[in-house]
């Protein structure tokens, strides 16, 4: 039997639920931060409505679909983020209003309150560094492995907290370890003279860490998951977490555009992620 489909007037409680996750952000600044642009958006919602590390908001910059913005830093008033040069937001003046939905998604899940994390390993492509920036001081000891094509792409060490240990990986070996980050063992076991491949160091760091957070090309996740599994044997859930960047037009799991395949079926990045357990990407 069908229910009685009676038209109801929405109560004020229902309306407040509907509006609770829409916020009007005020642009405080948009300035070049080579090679990208940095923005700061002040939100009109409660502090709990500020996106945490790995969470996102969907911002309306006039395009047919909203754009996911991830925080690179946040405080009680709003959050900073990074966009590409030429992005519509770079043409806005301070004080401009931006309609945002969120925060949305599942962010990075570090140690529970009262159990501070001691050793955190961050792994990122240089382009994805801002996604992990909120975690630079999330543990007593943090190591950041950053991969770039060449030395010129790497940001200055002065831009990181002094306590952060940097491990550089370059594909051409111009500084730090010789890349790539994953697949090096399969590619060749012998590095050119004077260069050292990163795989041994990476395994040491994974063995050392209490938690691993990754923001890289999703195509590398199966190989990274395999390394984590090999080093840690039976890691606890969310020991290693990976942020997946794909278009997320709706942000609520309605459109199926953002589905990604994992070892236990497809998941919707926008609601089940965008931070997923790295071991979900283990090859079958």
């Amino acid at each position: 039997m069908r229910p009685s489909w009676r038209r109801l007037t929405p109560s004020s409680a229902q309306l407040s639920i509907t509006l609770a996750r829409r916020q009007i952000a005020t642009l405080r600044y948009a300035r070049p931060d080579p090679p990208a642009w940095g923005l700061y958006l002040a939100l009109d919602g409660a502090p709990s409505q500020i996106p945490g590390p790995g969470e996102y908001v969907l911002a309306d910059f006039g395009d047919p679909i909203r754009e996911p913005l991830f925080p690179s830093a946040s405080d009680e008033e709003g959050f900073a983020t990074v966009v590409a040069p030429g992005h519509p937001a770079t043409r806005l003046l301070p004080g401009a209003k931006v309609d945002v939905l969120g925060p949305l998604g599942r962010g990075f899940r570090l140690a529970p309150a009262g159990h501070p994390l001691a050793r955190l390993l961050l792994i990122a492509q240089v382009e994805a560094l801002p996604l992990l920036a909120p975690l630079y001081e999330a543990a007593a000891s943090v190591v950041l492995v950053v991969e770039a094509t060449t030395r010129a792409q790497l940001p200055s060490p002065a831009r990181f907290p002094p306590a952060l240990e940097l491990v550089h990986v370059t594909l051409d070996g111009s500084t730090g370890y010789l890349g790539p980050l994953v697949g090096a063992v399969e590619a060749s076991t012998v590095a050119p003279a004077g260069l050292e491949r990163v795989d041994t160091r990476l395994c040491e760091l994974i063995a050392w860490a209490e938690c691993v957070c990754v923001a890289h090309d999703p195509e590398t996740y199966p190989a990274l998951a395999t390394i984590v599994k090999r080093v840690r044997l039976q890691p606890f859930p969310d020991f290693a977490q990976a942020l997946v960047r794909v278009p997320m037009p709706c942000g609520v799991g309605a459109c199926d555009v953002c589905r990604v395949a994992t070892s236990h079926g497809e998941v919707r990045t926008c609601v089940d992620g965008p931070v997923l357990d790295l071991l979900d990407f283990l090859p079958l």
């Binding site: 038209r7 309306l15 509907t18 609770a20 709706c250 609520v252 309605a254 199926d256």
Partner: peptide, 18 residues
């Protein structure tokens, strides 16, 4: 079809009784 999920995706955003 294809824009709204299976009924609960927009539970926090849309009042279905309308």
């Amino acid at each position: 079809a294809g824009t709204f999920g299976y009924g609960d995706a927009y539970a926090d955003w849309v009042d279905p009784s309308l």
